[in-house]
Design a protein around this nucleic acid. Structure first.
Lengths: 162, 162
DNA sequence: TTCACCACAAATATATTATAACAACATAAT
DNA sequence: ATTATGTTGTTATAATATATTTGTGGTGAA
């Protein structure tokens, strides 16, 4: 079986992606002793509505459909929590957020972001991680946060364009 | 001779960094036929005031000391121009800008950003660039824009902390 | 039970970063 | 000189993010 998000734009049972993500989130929080409150759970669900990075204010708009009182801090606090738990990642080059499909293990992730369909695929390439760590080590630099984001055209969009 | 920005926090003749950057900018623009106007030149100079990434509004504040009428678009347009010419880079994880010390050749750059002293060093590691390109190629993904930013502690700050 | 605590969330205001839209001006090419 | 083009000025506003203060509800200790 290929990874669930290998081709997020291909037809797939996305409800399953969401359900799995929520199940994993419950497990992660149970383990860490953190509380996945209904609000936090709801925000995670909204992040997972697609495989595209989604902005905080887009989440806020959706949240407001059910909760009129929601305000920016409502969303940002929930996002901060989800980031801390490793349940989502922040895409710096887009100021947006995307779900993590393997929050259980620590990882240095990289993202392939299609500028055509906006899908973001998280990859976990050992070669990249090692090259980056090696280079930093050679410079005597101790890395605490990795931001590796590649923008371009995904195979599906390249095929369509041809 | 080691690269000029290998240890930007070490004492060095920073006026020389600025002068060199401006000279290179003149050369790059002469070659590309672009116009390095006084305003653009001034903004580049302000970006180069340090080896730390600097925000657009910080530049704007400095710009206003000499030019009362400066407004956000004044700065952003100049920054866009400098980015197009490859004279500066944008640090996505900081929403800030830093000078490029070798604008003459195309490169996939990476940044080591110290969260203590805020210095950003541009490295040009073949190993990282190759690993990234290889991984993207394997995924059939065509990359047009690379964002590789490593935050952590630089050797100088690590030494001081010890 | 009841109180004290504390994490969570609500509510309001504001800070920070970035762009849209249009007018005025300068430059270079013809 | 005239025109096309690129640059800058100006005003307004959009988009993203945080500070701060107050309320609220669940949990455990007494």
């Amino acid at each position: 079986m290929e990874p669930r998000t290998a081709r997020p734009t291909a037809p797939h049972d996305h409800d399953r992606c969401i359900a799995d993500a929520l199940d994993m989130a419950e497990a992660v929080c149970a383990k860490s002793g953190a509380r996945l409150t209904p609000l936090r759970r709801r925000v995670l669900e909204l992040v997972w509505n697609s495989h595209r990075p989604v902005g905080a204010y887009a989440i806020l708009d959706e949240l407001r459909e059910g909760d009129r009182g929601a305000a920016p801090p409502t969303v940002y606090r929930a996002l901060d929590f989800l980031l801390e738990q490793g349940l989502i990642h922040r895409i710096e080059s887009l100021n947006a957020f995307v779900g993590c499909d393997h929050p259980e293990d620590r990882h240095v992730s990289q993202f392939l972001i299609c500028t055509n369909c906006n899908a973001a695929v998280e990859i976990d390439d050992r070669g990249i991680a090692n090259a980056v760590k090696k280079s930093a080590a050679e410079a005597g630099f101790s890395v605490s946060r990795f931001t590796i984001e590649l923008q371009g055209t995904c195979p599906a969009c390249a095929a369509k364009a041809a």
